[in-house]
Amino acid sequence: MSGMQPALRRVIYVSHTVTDPDEPIGPVLASILTAARRNNPRIGVTGALLYTARRFAQVLEGPPEAVEAIFETIQCDLRHDHVTVLEVSAPTVRAFADWSMAFVADAPVRAETLGEAGGAAELLAMLQAAIRNTEAATA
């Protein structure tokens, strides 16, 4: 029964990078992912980050307090703006159970559709597919 399991929270948001377009984004992404992969396992948070066409999309899932705390830290980051929350939910299972923070770059999703209704489900499905492909390729 789901009632026996600890509560899960999932939040999906999109935002725009405000880094200089002429500067390589690599170091920024590396620092975001390094911090996430260092901190998330300790607090039971998993998720995925997408970067495409100067937009970020991120899925965070885990214990509600941990997800809300991490989300708040991310909101205080001045390297992005135009933050829009697409989904806040209480799923029964994690979508990225094996990933402290999976990363997908230049995914086949139009940036404009991210903010639309149904964008959250589309994004989630796309990220899961992209990660399955990566796993298959490296298996």
């Binding site: 939040v11 909101q75 933050v83 929350v85 806040v88």
Partner: peptide
Amino acid sequence: RLVELIGRPFLLDGHS
């Protein structure tokens, strides 16, 4: 900076 930061979503008790 204040207007931008405070204008971003807050995640509170399961609500955005």
